[in-house]
Design a protein around this nucleic acid. Structure first.
Lengths: 212, 212
DNA sequence: CTGTTGACTGACGAATCAGTCAATAATTAC
DNA sequence: GTAATTATTGACTGATTCGTCAGTCAACAG
């Protein structure tokens, strides 16, 4: 009962799959779990997605698509480049419980053996970096940023955020959230050639810079 | 046939388990794979390790122990602190195919749900960082390094290497090995307040520093 | 109102694998 | 040399889970 159009049902299933994977991880998520979460038969999941492998890959692609949309929206907003960069950091730095990062960490691991998954992650990473590059370039062009190579800067920022995500997941609790946030600001600001305070939590500028 | 003392057999099995996990990943490694690699029955593996979960955890602990021994050996060598830091980077930077990193990336993922694994990884990370801290501190004390806080520097170096590992695995081939090595040198040197050329591939010092 | 499509079910087949256990071969103890 | 001990086997079980399929029923077209 409650029959749905294919597109809607597929999206619903992908959404549920992403949620289950965040909670249980890829390996321990059963297609029965996904079906159960939607109160639907496991047969239906297979009706829409032939194999579990395909389901997982499409779920990652779905999650990646949503993430990239959010990124593009943030970047396309009005306001100074610095302000948008700040928003971007708040969106993606793994400060907080960062349930989204759990998904990507699982993806890195599974992607080492699953070609399809690997390609999905790779494509997302390319989009992510090219978005950062264009934002950084915009800042360089209008004089807000002072750095040499937008591509290298984008890589280094990505590197740092990935590493931080690993640390905050692999050593939950060992690093203060506030300290991590401070490091992100310092690192990004250093890369962009701006004042770390400009990326501070509230006001864009004009607060004490109590860092070494 | 070919009976072995428990300690030896256990070590052999752990070694084989690590190898299998590097190749297949945690989830898709069967205990039959481990047994098969040693040309031994699966019953024997269970004779030494009650459950697969235990086997995997101990395999990670074993790998971590070996890695930490190598680290301590490198750090305890004679020579300047810079030289030892250079050796350390060569040992751990995920330049090359880095099969060791595959293990840790799997560990990060599985450790999010497996308490025992999580603790193993956490302990190794603590040891790793405290080793780095003491090396950095030594360099600060004898004037080779110029930085403010050894702990923060150790964290940032770790962060960077982890992030780089992710990038080189998640986007195999997209980043030139040489460029990655260059970035590691720049980042580490920047943190330590020294000339990146001092961490260069061959001679300890006295070569051109062709970086921005 | 009726026929057709297609989303959906639920039971089932088939395969996979972790873990058990009784039997056996090698080692050690005495 | 014999008994006790211990490492090892390999066949087996029980549980799990992916994927299939024959059939049901809602929605819609005509």
């Amino acid at each position: 009962m409650a029959r749905k159009k294919v597109v809607l049902r597929r999206e619903e299933i992908l959404e549920a799959t992403v949620e289950q994977i965040k909670q249980r991880g890829i390996a321990t998520t059963r297609v029965a779990d996904v079906a159960g979460a939607l109160k639907v038969s496991s047969g239906l999941v297979h009706y829409h997605f032939a194999t579990k492998e395909l389901l997982v890959e499409e779920a990652f692609a779905y999650a990646a698509r949503r993430e990239m949309e959010a990124l593009r929206t943030t970047i396309a907003r009005s306001g100074s480049v610095v302000t948008r960069m700040k928003a971007l950091i708040r969106l993606y730095a793994p400060t907080g419980q960062a349930p989204g990062w759990r998904l990507w960490i699982d993806g890195w691991s599974a992607g080492m053996r699953d070609k399809g998954l690997h390609d999905v992650m790779r494509k997302m990473d390319e989009e992510w970096k090219s978005s950062i590059v264009s934002l950084v370039q915009e800042g360089m062009d209008n004089g807000e940023f002072h750095c040499a190579d937008a591509r290298v800067v984008a890589w280094r920022i990505t590197l740092f955020l990935d590493g931080l995500a690993v640390q905050l997941v692999a050593r939950r609790g060992a690093l203060e959230k506030a300290e991590a946030a401070q490091w992100v600001r310092e690192h990004v600001a250093g890369q962009l050639g701006i004042d770390p305070a400009a990326l501070g939590p509230r006001r864009a500028a004009g607060q004490r810079a109590d860092i070494s």
